[in-house]
Design a binder for these strands. Structure first.
Lengths: 346, 346
DNA sequence: GTCCCGGATGACAACGTTGTCGGCAACGTT
DNA sequence: AACGTTGCCGACAACGTTGTCATCCGGGAC
């Protein structure tokens, strides 16, 4: 423990140092820092100058363990894969909302693994985040009872949680595919195929449901042969698209349930030389979608609104812990470009 | 302060609760939690069971203020815009590396604003992050002296910092554009244009430098009329591309310095009906680039390696604070598709 | 029997902050 | 003159944890 005094400056200055320099008690420094009343202007000024000259910064962490409300001014976010544009865009919106309220965001990717999701939540918990925003993956979010019991609010985004009720923000997935169907129908299409992910994925199920109900509304029923689900990657989607397009009669239009499906399907159309003949509407917008030929008509999710709503809900929940849980549905938007405008007769 | 005892459980259990239940001292609980020696197997077991039955979780934050090393097992990351695929991909890689070492990542977007960058760093600092990874924006990172003085290591990624030396990881930007030039030259191109961002942006300057040196190597000199820089968005890039293509003689190939430039340039080529005639190589890969017609040949950055290297450097720096600063250059990769294969004679 | 040693254990201080409370001076009121 | 009130301020406890240290106990060496 014998150390040269010159090395001492590694430790950042504390309110104690500030107090010594300003010749006041530590509590007075604390009062100034927290804008509490009861400090004379002169003293306040002296403290401020001491803070300035030492380069003092409050230790938020030490502060939070003592504060009554325990707030750390940070929130935790679990997404599926931050490298995914959907996730990063939602994250960015949450960040912005949090930043306005001087909060920081801890982010983790679950990769759809429930165990990882849970681990992340625990890690966030041990850092005392003020709240959690989660894109839930597993079939059971009841582990969150622990967080709730200890006063940490939770908001689900993109999908509702299971076995655990909480504020939730989702896109209007069903309306999106329904709009796609009606858009295509208006251009004369009757044989419309749907390619989607596993039905155990909430969004995939919703999108198929929207597709089905719009088809039933228009045609009495959707032809089952034109509906392929359970496609987990672009390779499977590619194969399914080839199959569906090989049917007789072949569909004149395709609705793709997500990004990966779109990639597989467009590749399939490309191989068949059918990109200009078969109409196609994809769920989720894609960078440069308008540079494709034909430019890709998409159902775009409002990721900014999704993230902002989730963050807003979280902060509102922090202010009103007892209020009833709410569910917000964010509208999606059909962006007409070219691939969705191809008529049935082509 | 009179409260019903039933509401007391909002506070999470502490080692005190665990100690009481296991009938040991708090220090013994601490020893078990930290795998310190000197606890008999029987006691250890009793503590473990108490931890389990109470659902106790360590309060990392309280722990860190007392620990000798002050570690919080979290790091701070400042990117320019997390919604940008480049940033989110790098972030994801950093996350993964950090997660392996049981660290969490706080992320913020600076939007290229030096003030915001600095604010974020301060916020991270007050949360006692163990280290910082920064995509620097301003012309001066000397404010980081404060962090360094207090033992917080810094790593720059994508661009070097200014007025502050630190470990740095960058892509080999110059090699990327040089490779693009050679690739085009091998297909007979002599009149190659370059469209890029402001030269004050490090990556933009490096990319132009690589372009220039390869052109000089091949042709003695790059024709200045074919070089346009200072393009800050796709609209400006669009205009510049139209201009350059209107020259006589017109360039037979285009090298685009970044994503936004690519969007503008491809739109311009589209309008000119020249997408199949003028070769084009873009910096930065794009989702679905291979669905474009012609599929876009790109110089792809290895974002995963960029992020992983930065994280590795940070952790190595934490272990060896005194070691000399290092600079790592990550190779880029030319991904030949179609737009770069168009011959000069087309 | 005495001494020493090492393992196990807990009492207590400390980290940097905020909450509680009491003291002191100045002032106005009886 | 005595009293209460108000504004300002600091001593001290407390948050949940880890670091320091003293203590206790059993066993082996003399």
């Amino acid at each position: 423990m014998t150390r040269v005094d010159g090395q001492d400056d590694r430790r950042a200055p504390t309110i104690k140092d500030v107090a010594a320099l300003a010749e006041v008690g530590i509590k007075t420094v604390s009062r100034v820092l927290n804008d509490e009343p009861g400090v004379s202007p002169g003293t306040k000024d002296r403290v401020r100058r001491a803070v300035e000259s030492l380069g003092y910064r409050r230790n938020t962490i030490a502060s939070s363990i003592r504060r009554r409300d325990r707030r750390t001014a940070s929130i935790g976010l679990v997404v599926e894969d931050l490298a995914n544009p959907f996730a990063s865009s939602v994250t960015r919106a949450i960040q912005d909302y949090a930043a306005e309220r001087a909060h920081l965001v801890l982010v983790g990717s679950s990769d759809g693994d429930p165990a990882r999701e849970r681990t992340l939540v625990q890690e966030f918990g041990s850092r005392l985040v003020d709240g959690l925003i989660i894109v839930p993956s597993g079939a059971d979010q009841s582990y969150l009872d622990y967080e709730r019991a200890h006063g940490v609010p939770v908001v689900f985004v993109d999908r509702p949680g299971r076995r655990f009720k909480a504020d939730t923000v989702v896109s209007d997935n069903a309306a999106g595919t329904a709009a796609a169907v009606r858009h295509l129908a208006a251009r004369g299409h009757e044989r419309i195929a749907f390619l989607g992910d596993r039905q155990s994925v909430y969004t995939a199920a919703q999108r198929l449901a929207g597709f089905r109900s719009a088809m039933e509304e228009l045609r009495g029923e959707a032809d089952r042969r034109y509906v392929r689900t359970g496609l987990r990657d672009s390779v499977q989607a590619h194969a399914a698209a080839l199959e569906v397009c090989g049917l007789d009669p072949a569909p004149t239009a395709l609705v793709c349930g997500n990004n990966l499906v779109t990639i597989g399907a467009v590749h399939a159309l490309q191989e068949l030389g059918a990109r200009d003949r078969v109409a196609c509407i994809a769920f989720d917008d894609i960078e440069l979608a308008d540079l494709l030929r034909p430019a890709l008509t998409v159902v775009a999710q409002d990721t900014a609104a999704l993230g902002a709503s989730a963050a807003r809900m979280l902060f509102e929940r922090l202010d009103a812990p007892g209020a009833p849980y709410r569910r917000t549905t964010v509208a999606v938007r059909l962006v007409p470009r070219e691939s969705g405008e191809i008529p049935a007769s082509a």
